[in-house]
Design a protein around this nucleic acid. Sequence first.
DNA 1: ACAGCCATGTAACTTGTTACATGATTTT
DNA 2: AAAATCATGTAACAAGTTACATGGCTGT
Lengths: 160, 160
Amino acid sequence: MHGYELKRSLDALLPRAQAVNVGQVYTALGKLEKDGDVEAEFVPNGEHSDRRVYTITDRGRGRLEQWLMLPVQRGDLRDEVFLKLALVRRTRTDAVHSVLTVQRTETLQQIQNLTLLAQRVPADQLETELLLQGVILHLEADLHWLDLWEDRMESGGPKR
Amino acid sequence: MHGYELKRSLDALLPRAQAVNVGQVYTALGKLEKDGDVEAEFVPNGEHSDRRVYTITDRGRGRLEQWLMLPVQRGDLRDEVFLKLALVRRTRTDAVHSVLTVQRTETLQQIQNLTLLAQRVPADQLETELLLQGVILHLEADLHWLDLWEDRMESGGPKR
DNA sequence: ACAGCCATGTAACTTGTTACATGATTTT
DNA sequence: AAAATCATGTAACAAGTTACATGGCTGT
């Protein structure tokens, strides 16, 4: 593919609002080319600008294969909401509940937005549908987690 | 607090393995000072090096308050596992199952590690316990999501 | 005429992170 | 004697991201 084509391909995977910045595609392709993972060649395009069409190299194919089969490490312990809650608990114990409520409201809002979005995804876009489902599952986990905080704050909480 | 003290404070919130790089604390404090959110003053420390003790300014306190009460937007649609699955489905439909299995194994492993870690957290470290619980909830959501993929791949899947 | 799409790319900024440099003290 | 802790900080790299620059074509 050429750069712009790739951008469109990526956009098609994501809901309308989340379009990719084109510049990023070109910087990424530049890096891949420098590393020898892809090769490019100009292909005339009639009236339009010529296209730089990229082809994956053997090296690139190998690295792609490796990347695909390498599991993603997902259990990151750095979490902004956690930081806020831990901090607020130590300095203004009484405000923990507010932070929890604000965050819960936001999360519910997000879930609603994404649910609406999911309903508008064409039935043939299986992947996009699954992506949204995944994000929603995470947000629901967040809600459970906020409830856990709330429970723990009540017992052994504000007075101490 | 002074820089090193802050580092220790942060470390205390996280399990042993996840210690903060000290350098980062100093670069962050430097930026806060430049922005006028904190002020520093040297305090002698007997035999040891003098300490630069930081104090929050009014401006800093205001910005902190804002940050605390601003909800974190959590529903990020960029997901590496999703990218892998979407890509592999389009180029080697038969390999989707392998990617799913690799990722599931990794996720189970992570959950086990974190569960063990959680058991070793002292009972008085409420926050750390909750942090680990949160990460585990997310990983369990990941497992559900991988199952969703598996289901959807079977119906309407490999042959197409 | 103006907006928007097609097509390329570069310069620059932010954030996160690490590796290193220095030097004294305390623990093993 | 070596390793770890206390304490400060800088230089530099990596990744992600955006804003801008250029120019032609297409649809309203």
